[in-house]
Nucleic acid binder design. Structure first.
Length: 725
DNA sequence: TGTTGCTCCCTTTTT
DNA sequence: GGGAGCAACA
């Protein structure tokens, strides 16, 4: 038997050994949340619950695997049968078992990000929406809006009113697109990420047999990162627990509202706050002691939360005293920042294993310079977040074959293959696709493109053979090889390696459709269990969620980057950036270093552009961070307290609130101003200091100017001297 | 009419 | 580095 009382603190012990019924665990960063879930799984098994009667829903598949693995070790037995994974992967496997009724006999395919973009673009082109209109949003942003409207469950026009006021003139067109895109998926048997969740909910509500079978199977449901669930996910939890039928429900949810960082995709903090009222009689347990970080790290984290608009009534505490001081490092530029980071990592490598070091950043492309510098220094790294592995062109090509084998109606895949043959463009694709559906009339159109006809025959053969995933991938790779060499004469061997990796992964699957779905649902990074050399980690903060390292370096802590410039439009977005910064800092166990470049290289300006330090950094007082600065010779030196005060004044671009005279901007107004005059300025907005980019609309004598901030939907009068640059 | 090639512009976060 | 738009070519 496991000695639970000895292994856990009091609160953790209560959580692990609590009886049936709903439980809410509020777990601060580093408070042993994973440990608690792992022991809970083990405890349930020790107390007679069959492993396959548990459902563990986590934020990434990796997290689920990790927890199941650790619970298995505790119990000294493999935990066969526990269903663990993301909401999306659980939805996929459930829907595969109980297909949505509207599909009839047709197969369905899960779309990946690229398919969704291609589909929406197709709809946009077909409807001829926004042709030649530069103010019409890009396909990518449209995809984001459509998904957001579903995730937040707001009608599109309402969403636009709230979050994209400037797009209101296009509301009708976008609504049209939304419908066309829905029809498109329905016609072709395609599901996007959001469909998975809504179809699962529909299934649980309407298919009594399926519901009964699922309820029969899962006696306990555990949900991790509950603060990042959206409305439909919360309803799914309710349905699974049977709460709608008045049952108490054996459901344990774990989360931390201070770490909610997915509001942008519809996550709703209300879910965790409202849990007690939705599940009456639920037990609430707080895990507050931090076991991860030193006091120096927690001081910084607590300082960030203390400045939050919403109070979290939360301070992390630790018994670990002191620790290395948190360093705040100012570099000349993003280039020299990369050099400093690389140099510092070299030093840290004397002290830590590579896998104990991470560099974190707000957006994927921010790490570009650091990647180069590390490469030159010969320091191996692995990057998470940003551009995905499966989004590489050659991988998409190969997967297009595979998808067509599964679902002949998959238009994005069909188009992808077709346009590779010369002479086939968008119009011909449509004719070919239509012909392919009707059968015999096909040959005439296809005859002009024998290469493509061959492709189709090849696909039909493979479909008829019904090969296993490994054999299918082998056949497709062999066929694709000549094209790969022709397309990428320089680096095809590297790409071939990636393809071989994909083929290897496929061999772990019995069913092709699960393989395709998994590729869309999660980046296959946790591969390489081989004796590969250890690497340091580069990661977006979002992808670093739930992970921890001994040494964490956060880079590009400047305005417009962290917080992201997109977060300036609304105060609540700004608050999410703050929580994101909090998440980033609390990943560190022993060492935390914050890097602030004073300038960023700007290609358009052909030079370095001065940038202000992130407002989050400016909040940190000199008693909790140790300040270092890059000297003219590129060597770091420690700054004394007095010099700090003056640099802070200089870096602070706050505008006194009484200087701001703002009026809401009429929708559609002020489109396409020719003024080349760009201004950066700060203006008081609510209680926050928010900075953005605006255009000078007109000069107002003697010393004021009117500036339009598209991001705010505002025109403001500013004193000229307050403008930077 | 449809395809291909060229240039300009912007670049969040994820299932 | 990729998407969108525009102009030249088949």
């Amino acid at each position: 038997m496991i000695d639970y009382a000895h292994a856990l603190n009091e609160a953790q012990y209560t959580a692990v050994t609590i009886g049936d019924g709903p439980v809410l665990i509020i777990a601060g960063a580093g408070s042993g949340k994973t440990r608690t879930i792992v022991y809970r799984l083990a405890w349930l098994v020790e107390h007679g619950l069959e492993p396959d009667a548990m459902l563990l829903l986590t934020f990434t598949r990796k997290a689920a695997h990790e927890m199941l693995h650790r619970a298995g070790i505790l119990l000294q037995q493999g935990l066969v049968g526990i269903q663990g994974g993301t909401f999306h992967s659980f939805a996929f496997s459930t829907l595969r078992r109980w297909k949505p009724a509207w599909l009839g006999e047709r197969p369905f395919t899960l779309m990946d990000a690229a398919d969704i973009v291609a589909a929406v673009k197709h709809c946009r082109d077909t409807l001829k929406l926004g042709k030649g209109d530069r103010s019409f949003p890009k396909t990518q942003s449209i995809v984001g809006l459509l998904s957001k409207s579903r995730n937040k469950e707001l009608p599109l026009d309402e969403l636009l009113r709230r979050e994209a006021y400037h797009l209101l003139p296009h509301a009708t067109a976008l609504a049209q697109l939304q419908m066309a895109y829905a029809d498109y998926r329905r016609d072709k048997g395609l599901l996007d990420y959001d469909d998975l969740l809504f179809e699962l909910e529909a299934l649980l509500r309407t298919n009594a047999a399926a519901m009964a079978a699922i309820r029969q199977r899962y006696k306990h449901v555990l949900v991790d990162e509950y603060q990042d669930t959206n409305l439909v996910q919360a309803r799914i939890v309710r349905l699974l627990a049977g709460a709608d039928e008045g049952q108490p429900g054996n459901v344990m949810v774990v989360g931390d509202e201070a770490q909610s960082i997915y509001a942008f995709r519809g996550a709703n903090v209300r879910n965790i706050l409202d849990f007690p009222s939705l599940f009456p009689g639920c037990a609430i347990i707080h895990l507050e002691e931090n076991y991860r970080s030193t006091k120096a790290v927690l001081d910084v984290a607590n300082c960030l939360l203390a400045h939050a608009a919403e109070s979290f009534h939360k301070r992390l505490f630790t018994r670990q005293q002191g620790g290395a001081a948190v360093r705040l490092i100012t570099a000349h530029s993003d280039m020299s920042q990369a050099q400093l980071v690389t140099q510092r990592i070299r030093e840290l490598l004397d002290e830590y294993q590579p896998q104990e070091i991470a560099v974190l950043f707000r957006a994927g492309f921010h790490s570009y310079h650091v990647e180069l510098a590390l490469q030159q220094a010969g320091i191996p790294f692995r990057k998470y977040g940003g551009l995905r592995y499966s989004e590489a062109a050659h991988i998409k090509d190969v997967m297009a074959y595979v998808r067509l084998i599964l679902n002949p109606l998959d238009l994005p895949a069909f188009a992808r293959l077709a346009v590779q043959h010369s002479g086939i463009g968008p119009k011909t694709v449509e004719r070919l696709y239509a012909a392919a559906q009707t059968g015999d009339a096909a040959l005439k159109v296809f005859a002009k493109f024998p290469g493509f006809l061959d492709d189709m025959r090849f696909i039909d053969e493979l479909r008829a053979k019904g090969c296993d995933p490994a054999a299918t991938l082998d056949a497709v790779l062999e066929r694709y090889r000549p094209r790969l060499e022709a397309l990428y004469p320089e680096d095809w061997p590297r790409r071939q390696q990636g393809l071989d990796e994909i083929a290897h992964m496929a061999s772990a699957y019995a069913d092709l459709d699960f393989f395709v779905a998994d590729l869309a649902l999660e980046t296959p990074e946790d591969d390489a269990p081989t004796a590969e050399e250890a690497r340091i980690t580069l990661s977006t903060v979002h992808s670093a969620k739930g992970l921890e390292w001994n040494a964490v370096l956060i880079i590009d802590l400047v305005e417009d980057r962290f917080p992201s410039r997109h977060a300036l439009a609304r105060p609540e977005n700004f608050e999410e950036e703050r929580r994101l910064m909090y998440v980033a800092c609390t990943r560190a166990r022993q060492r935390l270093e914050l890097y602030v470049p004073s300038s960023l290289y700007n290609r358009a300006a052909q030079g370095n552009e001065h940038v202000c330090a992130s407002p989050f950094v400016r909040e940190l007082t000199s008693d909790i961070v140790e300040e270092w600065e890059e000297g003219p010779d590129g060597i770091l030196f420690k700054r004394d307290d007095r010099s700090r005060a003056s640099t802070r004044e200089q870096g602070d671009c706050q505008l006194p609130e009484d200087e701001v005279d703002s009026e809401p901007l009429a929708p559609g107004g002020q489109g396409g101003t020719e003024e080349r005059n760009e201004a950066r300025a700060g203006l008081g907005y609510c209680r926050h200091r928010i900075f953005g980019r605006g255009k000078i609309v007109r000069q107002l004598p003697p010393d004021k100017v009117q500036v339009h901030f598209p991001g705010f939907g505002l025109k403001v009068i500013l004193s000229e001297y307050l403008l930077l640059e």
